[in-house]
């Protein structure tokens, strides 16, 4: 599934009452949104520098602004951290609300669009030193 497809499925979970998702859809949406973001990220590397896709996501995000520019790069970074934090349930947070999810859905959609428009096939990546994280 590509990022757009994942976003479409997320929208369906958010909009309709999909059987079997009663009560669990808010968290499912968070993870799918994060996956959509990660998938779009993987697509960026596939078009530009496939080897970077193998490093941890955090490292990929550090490199990202040099490829897509600061604005989109930082937006993706922030979104990913937010969705990770909500999905990991670190704090005492309860499941997010539909309004929050809709907001993130919009943000991820525009970020995905931003990523794809800034990295057409054949884009050259500037040289960068990437330190892989201990996995």
């Amino acid at each position: 599934m590509n990022a757009e497809q994942i976003l479409a499925e997320t929208d369906r979970l958010l909009r309709d009452e999909v059987r079997g998702t009663r009560g669990l859809w808010p968290r499912a949406c968070v993870w799918m949104l994060r996956l959509a973001l990660e998938t779009a990220l993987a697509e960026v590397w596939a078009r530009t520098r496939p080897e970077i896709a193998r490093v941890p996501t955090r490292a990929q995000l550090l490199v990202l602004p040099t490829v897509v520019g600061d604005e989109v790069g930082q937006r993706v970074n922030h979104l990913w951290v937010t969705l990770s934090s909500v999905g990991h349930h670190h704090s005492y947070e309860l499941a997010p609300t539909a309004a929050e999810l809709r907001g993130w859905h919009n943000d991820v959609s525009s970020a995905v669009a931003g990523l794809s428009s800034r990295t057409p096939r054949g884009t050259q990546l500037a040289r960068a030193t990437i330190v892989p994280e201990d996995a």
């Binding site: 499925e9 079997g20 669990l24 999905g87």
Partner: peptide, 26 residues
């Protein structure tokens, strides 16, 4: 939740392969 997802027919399989492990990890 993870179990419920494996039983639903309303979601495409590749969505399930994303979500079920996520619920398990959670």
């Amino acid at each position: 939740d993870a179990r419920a997802l494996t039983l639903t027919a309303d979601l495409p399989p590749d969505v399930l392969t994303m979500l079920v492990p996520a619920f398990c990890r959670h």
